[in-house]
């Protein structure tokens, strides 16, 4: 983690690079988020509305929750050096299983949640086994798994299915003041994952395997364990996103995940949050910043009534520009060991 441990090193680089180089990528993400916030509040004010009204804040936070769940899981998978392109299909599947098993009976809720998350975990386990056991690149393994699930969904479900009871629908609808319950749940999951990454053995193993798989293996880390754990947690979190969508819509839908484009957007949010796509470096806190930026952008564009197709253009440009801002910076902040100073090793993405 660069944020906590690099304070003395940061001072050394500061002399060479000035204020900008001293910031960690997580700090830059929140700086960008702040810029979006300021620009947004001004733009929204010009239309005569208040960006900081409770209703609008609640809308932004609601927007963070679904993508947040998926992006937290995606962070783990990317940290371990893999990718997960199957999350949007897992989300759809979980929403269908959840709403289908509930069938508008409050008594069925625990069973439905357990079954949906259990099946998500099994999918994650298979992803992890294929990546770690069969040595298939994560991109292909999860692309294939996504295709397998999409075929199942297209064959067995023609439209929305099931019915969530009122008690379950309340989860997606209520909030503490302007903060929706779903966002609090997402933040709780983020805290748990953060704790796991920094306080448990498996968390350190995830960083080690992502940094250099061979070195980790030779140091006695069980590589498959870390890869499988990351994939299982990622799929379970995608399943929770699906349950949240089911509670919000009241029904399960076979296209709810793919319509949101959560697979690619979550990867974009993770990279926007300063995590290296190659793995081994990054943080969940940064990812939350990336998700917040996306949610605020969406909200601002909705308030300004921008054409929905232009929203994608803005999103695409923002992703590339924001990543370009810190992708050029030196990633390894290691003090120079040989020769004249100021010559730092750079990792090429």
């Amino acid at each position: 983690m660069t944020t906590t441990s690099s304070a003395p090193r940061a001072k050394q680089t500061a002399q060479a690079g000035g204020f900008f180089a001293r910031l960690s990528s997580t700090q830059i993400v929140y700086l960008v988020a702040l810029l979006v916030l300021i620009a947004g509040s001004i733009l929204v004010a010009t239309t005569g509305r208040n960006f900081f009204s409770p209703g609008n804040i609640s809308a932004i936070l609601t927007g963070t929750s679904v993508l947040g769940f998926i992006a937290i899981g995606q962070t783990l998978v990317i940290l371990v050096g893999s990718l997960d392109l199957s999350v949007s299909y897992v989300t759809s599947l979980a929403s269908l299983i959840g709403a289908g098993v509930m069938a508008n009976q409050s008594g069925n809720v625990p069973a439905a949640v357990a079954l949906a998350l259990g099946i998500s975990a099994v999918i994650g386990l298979m992803n992890g086994l294929i990546v770690a056991g069969l040595k298939v690149h994560g991109f292909i393994a999860t692309l294939g798994m996504g295709l397998i699930i999409s075929g199942y969904l297209a064959t067995n479900y023609k439209g929305s299915f099931g019915q969530a009871p009122l008690s379950f629908r309340l989860i997606g609808a209520t909030g503490l003041g302007p903060v929706p319950i779903s966002t609090l749940e997402m933040l709780a999951c983020a805290a748990l994952v953060l704790l796991m990454l920094h306080r448990t053995r498996i968390g350190h193993h995830i960083y080690a395997v992502g940094g250099n798989r061979d070195v980790a293996r030779m140091s006695g880390v069980r590589v498959p364990g870390a890869v499988i754990a990351a994939h299982v947690i990622c799929s379970v979190l995608a399943g929770m996103a699906g349950l949240l969508l089911a509670s919000r819509l009241g029904v399960g839908s076979p296209t709810v995940g793919t319509q949101g484009g959560y697979d690619l957007l979550s990867i974009a949010a993770v990279v926007l949050g300063g995590t290296l796509l190659a793995g081994g470096k990054g943080s969940v806190v940064g990812t939350l910043g990336g998700v917040l930026i996306f949610a605020m952008l969406d909200n601002i564009m909705s308030v300004l009534q921008i054409n929905p197709f232009m929203k994608d253009v803005v999103r695409g440009v923002v992703i590339v520009v924001a990543v370009a801002v810190y992708a050029r910076r030196t990633i390894v902040t290691r003090p120079p060991r040989f020769g004249h100073g100021g010559h730092q090793q750079e990792i090429q993405p």
Binding site: L264, I267, A268, V271, L277, A278, D312, V313, R315, G316, V317, I319, V320, V323, A324, A327, R328, Q348, P349
Partner: peptide, 16 residues
């Protein structure tokens, strides 16, 4: 600009 190609072409895909 050293942006990972996954991100660059993803952005290009959305924008185009």
């Amino acid at each position: 600009l050293r942006v990972p190609s996954f991100i660059v072409t993803l952005g290009m895909m959305l924008a185009l």
